[in-house]
Amino acid sequence: MSLELTFWWLLAIKLAVAAAVVPVIGMVIGYAEMKLSAHMQSRVGPYFAGGRFGWAQLIADGVKFIQKEDIIPEKADRPVFKWAPALVMLGTMALLVIVPLHPSSRYGIVRDLEVGIFYALAISSVSTIGVLMAGWSSANKYSMIGGLRAAGQLIAYELPLVLATVGVVIQAGTMSMQGIVSAQVAQGWPFALTQFIGFAIFMIATLAELTRLPFDMPIAESELVMGYVTEYSGFRFLFFFLAEFANMFSMSVIAATLFLGGYGLWGINPETLLSPIILFAKVGVLVFLMIWLRWTLPRLREDQLQTLAWKWLIPISILNIIVTAVLKVVI
């Protein structure tokens, strides 16, 4: 009994598309961040490259990064240093595989996994290894502290992230991303209405997982120069750069799918081509929220971050699970 060869080909093509999506998404969100932050700060932001609105700024940046010399510190552990960005990128790309864009599983998704959300949470931890590798191999104390902070932070926030999704899984009765969306489409309202606590915790934990403000201690320019990416330059830096923005996208997609009804919108037939647009609009709102927060808040301290995770988020999310489970059985 063997799997069809065509299956592998199809999978390869879908994966290639998912891989191509990462730089595009990274550039779009990167541009959005530049432009939005500029307007929040009474600046114009990029306006030159590409003629109007500086739309080609990120492309120009990309070209610049690729042209730059790939500097590897002499004392660095070369193989680990070289592979770290790839691993970070891998974790990001792998997340995009399960994003449901459309009810049709043939076009809308690379692969609908039965354990979809579980897969997403598992694979996102691969990036952590990449971050730790980058921090350790750079032979730089700032990088090292950055890597350690990243690890401590990701360990702490993995738990509330997972626990926050459990409520949704209980309500939907499935872990498949498609299944969760169809459950929301079927009932007509998103889980955010009932799982608002889970949603809030998920978004906070997401910010921490993405190491974005107010949880950007692993990078913390004013303290650690650039944290674990201090020693990276050129193409390898581009990997981290794109991975950050692509990760924003994929985490927002997961949040939108779990809590905001994914491609479903009340009154609109999900079978149409509007579905991906609806999903992207929801993602856009979440991404905007993250950008807005980033340019408003200062950074927390490491111990405050851990306190928040262990003393607040985890107990609350466990309580949320218990309440959801009881209500599920009762109602």
Binding site: P214, S222, W295, R299
Partner: peptide, 13 residues
């Protein structure tokens, strides 16, 4: 000062 604490926006104001 806010920039050192991570908030970039007050800088521009």
């Amino acid at each position: 000062y806010p920039l050192e604490l991570g908030a970039a926006t007050p800088l521009f104001f």
